[in-house]
Write a protein that binds this DNA or RNA. Structure first.
Lengths: 333, 333
DNA sequence: AGGCTCTAGGTAATCGATTACACGAGCTCG
DNA sequence: CGAGCTCGTGTAATCGATTACCTAGAGCCT
């Protein structure tokens, strides 16, 4: 592949001039044309590796996704990629598959590649490498999930308003024995969603005792299904269940179906994350929708601010309740 | 961040020695220990950018995905990433979103970054840049979709056996008026699936006239829904529909539901791609399952063969029919 | 005309690694 | 005992760009 020297020779100028033309620095008409012609004729494209070495800027951002096969994160990754690209950065995606070691492995290679900044929606409860990222000086922004002890801005959704609406919705429909399926114990996201739900219900005089709080062993289909099974085995079966992740909701639905229970007649079901096909389930699922694409966009902007040395703090974007039919009574419209 | 010179100084050796220790080339016990100690103390990590410049190997592969939000491709990307990582490469994913211009844009930046090889599941019917990739000498392997006129191995699924089984399945269940929903006209994948289906049906004396062949305007939910609508408006409604992509199948299902038609009683429905939630629809969908993860793995190996100069040709892996209940009669088991 | 500023463009250092080549020390072997 | 090895290590070239610094000439002023 042609390099800058070839172009310089062909245009009869020095490499410096070629570089200047290409970066729009100083050069002027006549020389400029010759250089551009040479570039065209040789099909020259600057070598980004060399450029990155010299400028200490790779023009690449890293994104660690906790589970790429989870549609919520797929959409998040897609949004991040779009935004990064439109701002002239390319994106290297690493999928942690909810495994902290794999996450660390990815972070290490991204640092070795000298990416300009890193976005992380962390698997598990964080990891040693995240500390190193901060230490290395590479700009870091957390996405969707906070990590205790890591000093970096976090961009995520605020479920408070949606939870308030949800509690009101359930109360209005006469549901009195709610339950919740949360992420494995100790994850900040799980704890927070539980707190918010409990608080919101309390405002309507509805309790959420610990026996109706189920922590899944994983953030997957089977995790949700198993917890739903436990909940249904309770002496008093819950009459409404909130699954705090879309895959767990899917598992929960399957368990209900397997037992011949009907949604919403026997049990109301609500999920977090409005993934496209929830509108096509039977019945369509009422969900707490996070502003997924917006989260991705804002995260990229926050990261760029950090990269450019501008101040940037955490951001909370409101989630909202999308009422469909899985709690009963189709919404009047 | 510490560089190789810092390490050399601290260990009291030359940079050459440090490099040799780190790459396991020649050095021996005593010096080796000193170098490793220095590396540890300084937290040194080699700069991959510099290394890539010198060795002309970046250790990165590129993957262009036609639509990352399509679960089939998400799983494919995930499999490719896993395999690449386990072989010591990192992966840069570019999402074309079914837009050829965006695909070209991605390919361009990947080439500029001097990736060691490129995997492409091409959006549309290919693009000018693909020709340039071949011209540039960057090893290229096509994935899932062939591109006419591009001289590169292609790794994809062979639907023949599955189609044969499907035709037999439909015939056995007494379906006589099949229809098919294919990708926009002119895409090799669409044409091929149509041919295979038609041929397989013919063996049972069942015809597939053009009026029951619907080309969607896009590979999405709405594309599938619109075509299904047209098919249902036919004077003689089809009694079985094969949607050749999972998103189109979802659209088709919605149209059936909207018209109050029942699956499989009124119309049998079959989809391509066994995405996880098809097992959870009502009724569970009979599908032609592609060996998705295997495709990803094989594609990476084929690409590595190319990179290392070993010969490597196209690969076809058999798809298979997964019988569930959307064509009637649950399978005996 | 001499001196000044301004601009275009060349020369060479630089980024951080890898690696060809050279060199000296310690061996073996005739 | 010295020629010839091998082995470990250092010196310096190299990858392909960017950019600080310098020079030459043009234009302008007094």
């Amino acid at each position: 592949m042609a390099n800058i020297k070839d172009v310089a020779e062909r245009a009869g100028v020095s490499v410096a001039t070629v570089s200047r033309v290409l970066n729009g620095h100083s050069p002027v008409a006549e020389t400029r044309e010759r250089v551009l012609a040479a570039v065209r004729e040789l099909g020259y494209r600057p070598n980004n590796v060399a450029r990155a070495l010299r400028t200490a800027r790779t023009g690449a951002l890293g994104l660690i996704i906790s589970d790429l096969t989870n549609p919520f994160f797929t959409e998040l990754a897609d949004a991040v990629e779009d935004e990064a690209r439109s701002l002239g950065y390319s994106l290297i995606i690493g999928n942690a598959g909810e495994r902290p070691e794999q996450q660390d492995d990815h972070i290490r290679t991204l640092l070795d590649r000298r990416i300009d900044g890193l976005l992380v929606s962390s698997a598990g409860t964080g990891s040693a490498m995240l500390g190193e990222v901060v230490g290395s000086g590479t700009p870091l922004v957390l996405l969707d999930r906070t990590v205790p002890g890591i000093d970096a801005p976090c961009v995520r959704a605020d479920g408070r308003a949606a939870m308030t609406d949800l509690a009101a919705h359930l109360a209005a429909l006469g549901r009195r024995r709610p339950a919740i399926i949360v992420a494995p114990a100790g994850t900040p996201t799980g704890d927070e969603r539980l707190d918010l739900f409990r608080t919101a219900l309390a405002a309507h005089g509805i309790g959420l005792p610990d026996e109706r709080v189920g922590a899944a062993h994983d953030l997957q289909h089977t995790g949700g299904r198993r917890v739903m099974s436990d909940l249904l085995d309770l002496p008093q079966r819950p009459d409404a269940v909130l699954a705090t992740d879309n895959l767990m909701a899917l598992g929960a639905m399957d368990e209900l179906k397997a037992r011949g229970l009907r949604v919403p007649d026997d049990v109301a079901l609500v999920s977090y994350d409005d993934v496209p096909w929830f509108a096509h389930t039977d019945p369509p699922l009422t969900v707490i929708a996070q502003p997924t694409r917006e989260l991705g966009r804002v995260a990229v902007h926050t990261l760029l601010a950090r990269i450019e040395g501008r101040p940037a703090g955490s951001v909370l974007l409101p989630a909202r309740l999308v009422t469909r039919r899985s709690c009963g009574e189709p919404p009047a419209h």
